[in-house]
Design a protein around this nucleic acid. Structure first.
Lengths: 236, 236
DNA sequence: CGCTGAGCAAATGAATCCAATCTTGCGCAG
DNA sequence: CTGCGCAAGATTGGATTCATTTGCTCAGCG
């Protein structure tokens, strides 16, 4: 199941064992095993993990901060359904941050870093080949995170991690093509540029890669997912 | 006391009334009313706010996610003490994000937006004049947030908000000059550029403003603040 | 036949309670 | 006199329990 709980929530807390639940739920959501909009009742999750609602609540709160779940007062927790506006903003933010990060990574990448990236690529390729789309989007996200880590920017790495998580949700919601999740050749070209220490190439490749990703999803203006069903049925 | 709890934690949750505690503590930390490294015992806070430890824990967890407090397992919560490395990274991140945001804001700023910014400036000026440094840094942060809001980028606004919060902590820790918090003239020039819809000027002014801020703090390499008191006293 | 309102059930919000862990102070041995 | 070890106190971690809000159902009325 692609153990992803090695560094806890994003290095934030490490407190207690609710991080386990956090990681599990996060994996499930990102891998699209739980559909956006799904209700996440506290006691149900508590029963699944054999823990109290207290821990479930802590995990849900952390996920809410990552915007992967939406907490509605006295209603419950739901898997987030990013609006198209939010989707556009996520990619705009990535377009601002990630090219710079890629350039920084290219500037200081060591051979060992490149090896790590290529290993990521291999895993991703295998996941795509095996048809495990859920794992593929997660590995793609981890690839982008990996670049940020090479850049040595822990804070920007956090931002990239957050944005990639949300991107995974967005792609699962609005994807038009099935191969939307990071075509491998784009990633390969990126690694080559970084390995060659060419900052400009890395920056531009990242930009075009993000444009590619964005072109693969439908962000045309329309009623957001917040619209009530009644309004939709009324044909408003 | 500068009511800041109008939009809750960063629009994240709005759940329950622990947001009140969150906002209060955040204000106190950013205004430097609580020194970095200070322990924040749960039941003490619970007594102060006449509330159960449950809510205090929720607030502390949210603050931990913002990196304003550090949660140590079985130890407790402490006001964060960003290392110099973290300090540098925060400003590097700001240098990447904020100029772009300023340019976007300049591109689409309406007269009403400018009025809001100028009102921020007035409050900030008054706070500085009155010697209320704590409020000044908070208002400075809100000014930067305001620019991001004008840019219409809610996600980047969140990032800027987070970075500005941490900057406030950093400045209070490593400031050399006392006037470090955003000299007003820099902010005025920024507003002028945005009002004139000149994206390039806004971007460059923001960059130089951030460089200015960074030059005002001491980020020279040295042992981080994680050093034990014993090591310091030993003169290591 | 449709609409309104009271009542019921379920889920969340918050407080209290118990357990586990760390800190600190004291005592004793070397 | 100093250093190690142990026990008591304090503090956090997690579970259980009570209260409140929300949403739904169904009876009564227009």
């Amino acid at each position: 199941m692609l153990k992803a709980n090695e560094d806890r929530t994003s290095g934030v807390v490490t407190s207690g064992r609710w991080g386990q639940i956090y990681d599990d739920l996060k994996s499930a959501i990102l891998a699209h095993n739980i559909a956006p909009g799904t209700k996440l009742p506290e006691d149900e999750l508590g029963e699944v993990y054999s823990v109290s609602r207290t821990l479930v609540r802590a995990a849900l709160q952390a996920l809410a901060h990552d915007r992967l779940v939406q907490l509605e007062p006295n209603r419950g927790a739901f898997v987030a359904k990013p609006s198209k506006r939010e989707a556009r903003e996520v990619f705009e933010a990535r377009a601002i941050i990630e090219p710079k990060v890629a350039a920084m990574a290219a500037a200081i990448a060591k051979p060992s870093d490149i090896k790590v990236l290529r290993r990521h690529l291999d895993e991703e390729h295998k996941a795509i080949h095996d048809g495990r789309q859920g794992d593929a989007v997660m590995l793609s996200a981890r690839f982008h995170e990996g670049i940020a880590e090479i850049a040595g920017q822990t804070i920007l790495t956090e931002f990239v991690r957050s944005l990639c998580s949300r991107s995974a949700l967005i792609i699962s919601l609005y994807s038009r093509r099935t191969d939307t999740f990071c075509e491998s050749h784009a990633h390969h070209a990126l690694v080559d540029a970084i390995a060659a220490n060419s900052e400009l190439d890395a920056s531009e490749l990242m930009t075009s890669h993000l444009v590619d990703l964005l072109s693969g999803i439908d962000v045309s203006e329309s009623a957001g997912p917040q619209r009530k069903l009644s309004e939709i049925l009324r044909g408003v």
